[in-house]
Design a protein around this nucleic acid. Structure first.
Lengths: 134, 134
DNA sequence: CCATATACGACTGAACAGGTCCTATTTTGG
DNA sequence: CCAAAATAGGACCTGTTCAGTCGTATATGG
């Protein structure tokens, strides 16, 4: 019905795994890759994105790894997805260059079903916390 | 954040357009294609799927077209999406051939975040009615 | 009988996703 | 100080999916 990319899937698994550890404990990408039989490089890349977004912190070098920066109950699923997929507009890309660039501007308001569906999905994701899905 | 295919987009637009008409009024694929500047063949195909699912009825030949079979308030968005995309499993495809075929069976329960997210999305779609998004 | 409409399958080109590989850079332990 | 372990991140390949097009068959009203 709705497709979640592998990146998001791996991201949820990874951050969920970190969330099960005691606060401050450091987890490596390799540990997650092994535990869930996920390609190491993909987990690593996703963890890097989560790091950039500030949801987790990274420590380089030997004995390095990742740790959560906040309580799982304070991390909405929407934030995880956005961190990984990079906040795509999904809809109304015709407006991104201004209304005059939109060739179907006169009927754009009639296309609204998508916008409302999108809003509902985003609301669902933003009220769903990491702590609820682990 | 979540990708809705063009097929679904066109399907929502099309059935939404039909829903705005007085009950029983017949709408042609061409009319919808013209009104929203959508490729005719794609709208036609989507309408055929909606017909097969029973959400709308079709009338062939001259003066033919499509009409709703029930009240827009009784049509969940999930039903429209399923009619068009064909009820894909999305998750747990590893179980479709039985548990013994799943190479990661022992860690499958740990992968549950996806299942819970999926359940939430489906609930959101099944409580969202066509009448709410037109 | 013909114009109009649905029904539906085959095909193509482009975009994307998932995955792999390679090379830095950082950091710790011995 | 060096080797190993770990993050950081870019380049690339390949199979699949998607959007769109085309062609053809079927039904039907006038």
């Amino acid at each position: 019905m709705v497709r979640l990319s592998k990146k998001v899937e791996y991201g949820l698994i990874a951050i969920g795994h970190i969330a099960t550890k005691p606060t401050g404990e450091i987890v490596t990408a390799k540990e997650i890759a092994d535990a869930y039989k996920i390609p190491y490089e993909l987990v690593a890349k996703v963890l890097q994105k989560l790091t950039k977004s500030g949801l987790i912190v990274s420590h380089q070098g030997v004995r390095g790894g990742y740790a959560l920066t906040r309580n799982p109950g304070d991390i909405p699923v929407s934030m995880i997805i956005n961190a990984i997929e990079g906040m795509q507009p999904v809809i109304a890309q015709c407006m991104s260059d201004g209304p005059e660039s939109c060739t179907v501007f006169t009927v754009c308001t009639i296309k609204s079903p998508l916008i409302k569906v999108q809003a509902n999905i985003e609301r669902a994701f933003s009220t769903m916390m990491l702590s609820e899905i682990v």
